[in-house]
Write a protein that binds this DNA or RNA. Sequence first.
DNA 1: CCGGTGCTTCGGTGAGGGCCGAAGCATTCC
DNA 2: GGAATGCTTCGGCCCTCACCGAAGCACCGG
Lengths: 234, 234
Amino acid sequence: MTEARPDFRQGPGITRVAALLGDPSRAAMAEALMSGMALTANELAQEAGIAASTASGHLAQLLHEGLLSVTPRGRHRYYRIAGPEVASALEGLMGLVEAKGPSRCRPGPHDPALRHARSCYDHLAGALAVQMHDSLAARGLLRPGPEGLVLSETGASALAPLLPGVRLLAGRQCLDWSERRMHLAGPLGRALLLALLDQGWARRGQGREIALTRREEAGFAALFPLPQGSGAVW
Amino acid sequence: MTEARPDFRQGPGITRVAALLGDPSRAAMAEALMSGMALTANELAQEAGIAASTASGHLAQLLHEGLLSVTPRGRHRYYRIAGPEVASALEGLMGLVEAKGPSRCRPGPHDPALRHARSCYDHLAGALAVQMHDSLAARGLLRPGPEGLVLSETGASALAPLLPGVRLLAGRQCLDWSERRMHLAGPLGRALLLALLDQGWARRGQGREIALTRREEAGFAALFPLPQGSGAVW
DNA sequence: CCGGTGCTTCGGTGAGGGCCGAAGCATTCC
DNA sequence: GGAATGCTTCGGCCCTCACCGAAGCACCGG
């Protein structure tokens, strides 16, 4: 016998958030914002294929629930994902639809460029991100700490050309939904992606794509070499 | 006239899953199953406060979408969370509502026992889980590999009393939503929790709670000592 | 100033979907 | 065997909520 129900007919806390993400239009907006770029209300409306007025209502809800943040700039209002927790939750849901297999094979987001390198909210994802993680891990430059993964001192010096004043930023492992392997997220992951972009090791392409020229690709490989056993050796 | 839209009004992939979790009744069921225990359809109906027929429909949807799995046992049907990816997605959503702060302070799930030690789908969570992770990390027994975190060889031998035949199981770091710190999830996390329970280092309490007697608490502390700097030192 | 844009609020409309009770199968217990 | 229990399907009710267009504010330009 479960005694008197303490639960006020409203469901657990995740209900509100999940319901917001469970609407096609709002989900489309959220996914568009996962590129890490800030988008205006009109752009998001177009992305979702709805009227501006409808989009406005959706955005107000997402804002009120803390999933998005907004920065007014002139007569535009730029929306973006509110924070890493939101990105994590969205990643989790995305990983879920990937894991459910080829039941619904969307051709769009699966193009090779995105599998190779893309931004995942604020950090690098795709094959190159996995290589970055594996290279650091295999060389012992990464170790777990209370707040997540941190660079060892030799690791910090190895990345000096990329991040001159790298501090002991905490990162975390994030399951890459195209590679099914771990890559680096968290503050450390963000710092690495920003450094790659700021210092010309890579550039933003269409949407979430991260583009590298052949020369940049070589530079990346030199910075993040893979010893020998690349795969699931250990 | 909106019928000429090339986009099939269905939204991105996360929509379906999020919409499922966005219903109060389904969310309540999912959260109840996060204890890791398999529950019958009737128990879940009662948990959600709905009729058995309604619950049956919900469970069919969750099953069809791959969020739950079912094992018929006699005249009962035991439902459980389908896999780690589902648990991760739910954790992400839970972390989100925690991060949004005291806007809705639910007293129930916040009792001290749950903050101290609870099961998070299949692994240990709470203060003790953080201690376990930090102890292993601080002693250098954990290191990142391609598939996640693995125990070093000295780590495997240190845990021999707990896991005699421990293999190189991959774990991953998971943000604890009550402690705001990392704990161990993944296959390694699951194996550790199972070993703790099977070998009498701890027992299941009410719901997700993990209970330890004073003696068991001491044994745990001996197995997972914290060197000295416990907190956010590095 | 006065158009021109970006964004929001406001009613009214419509459909998708959650809810229940009753009836239909399946399984186990006596 | 028959009765009780667990679960599912079916039909019908009702309410929430996404949607749009038009009108109302803000902000920028000439």
